[in-house]
Amino acid sequence: ACMAGAVCGDHISPISDTTIMASAGAECKHVHHVSSQLPYALTVAAVSFLTFVVAGFTQQLGVVASAAISWIFGIAMIFSALWILKRIGSRQPH
């Protein structure tokens, strides 16, 4: 959970060295790069949070069972989020 939070914070922080270098490398405005990363980072952070909650509730089943349930739940949530985002994106005029 600590590492997931650190990665999320690194991706959405406007003062992160990797964010500054990525926007400089892409030759785009720094603020635009940060705002373009927000939907992706927050989606993954929400899925990660829910997966950790599931792991906490299933820990009494054992380490292997809890890990398997958490992985399956997390993968299902990611694919669900991708499907929803694809549906939302296809409704918007180009």
Rank of each mutant, 00 (worst) to 15 (best):
S48W: 01
S23I: 03
C28D: 04
V34F: 06
A45C: 15
A45S: 14
H33N: 12
V34Q: 12
S35N: 11
Q59D: 12
F57E: 11
Q37D: 06
L38A: 15
Q59N: 13
T58R: 07
L38D: 10
S35K: 14
Q60G: 08
T51H: 00
F57P: 02
L42Q: 06
K29S: 07
C28I: 08
T43L: 12
H32E: 15
S36W: 12
A46W: 05
H30W: 10
Q59E: 13
L38C: 11
A41H: 01
V47R: 00
F52L: 08
A46N: 09
F57W: 14
T51R: 00
A41W: 00
Y40G: 06
H32P: 03
A45N: 07
V34K: 08
V31A: 10
L50S: 07
T51W: 00
G25P: 01
V47G: 06
G25V: 01
V53D: 05
Q37R: 11
A45R: 02
E27F: 06
P39S: 11
S36V: 11
A55E: 13
C28W: 01
A24E: 12
L42R: 08
L38Y: 10
V31S: 09
S36C: 10
V53P: 04
S48T: 03
V31Q: 14
F52D: 02
T58I: 07
P39I: 05
Q59T: 09
G25A: 04
V47Y: 02
A24C: 09
H30A: 15
F49A: 10
K29H: 11
L38M: 15
V44N: 05
V53H: 11
L38T: 10
T58D: 11
Q37K: 12
Q60F: 13
Q59C: 09
S36L: 14
H32A: 13
A46M: 10
Y40H: 11
L42P: 02
Q60P: 00
H30L: 12
H33T: 03
A26I: 00
A41S: 12
V31R: 11
V31L: 13
S23G: 04
C28S: 05
C28N: 05
L50E: 03
Y40L: 08
Y40R: 06
V34A: 05
V44W: 01
T43S: 14
L42M: 14
G25N: 04
C28F: 00
A26T: 01
S35R: 13
S36E: 13
V34D: 03
V34L: 13
